[in-house]
């Protein structure tokens, strides 16, 4: 118990901060491993010969979408409190981006 206290003082964090830090760290590491796995799955799916091209394309898009959400909400902390305006900003940008991509793809032939 005494040793534990010493450790806490050395790290300059209160007990609550320490607990929050540990759970946050765990979340970050888990989501990193998840993203690596998603990337490998996407690459393997594209390299395999047994899947139809249309399904491959849809699958890759879904994997990218999941990674996008992980990056924003975990790595960039968008899920934490006081992130209302950043949420509006980035999703507005995303909607504009989708419209832009669809209209450009439709305009060019």
């Amino acid at each position: 118990m005494v040793e534990e206290n010493k450790e806490l003082i050395n790290s300059k964090l209160t007990l609550e901060e320490e607990i929050e830090y540990k759970s946050e760290m765990k979340l970050q590491l888990i989501s990193f491993v998840m993203m690596i796995i998603l990337t490998i799955i996407a690459f393997v799916a594209v390299a395999s010969d047994f899947i139809s091209p249309l399904f491959k394309a849809l699958f890759v898009l879904v994997m990218a979408g999941i990674q996008f959400v992980f990056q924003l909400y975990v790595f960039m902390h968008l899920g934490q409190k006081n992130h209302e305006f950043p949420t509006i900003a980035i999703w507005t940008g995303f909607v504009v981006a989708l419209l832009c991509i669809v209209s450009l793809a439709a305009l060019i032939w």
Partner: peptide, 22 residues
Amino acid sequence: LWFFLGGETALFATLFGTYLGL
């Protein structure tokens, strides 16, 4: 910075749209 990133999304969207079309 977050507003800037929202704008950057639109910048890259134009380039992605152009690439996908061409």
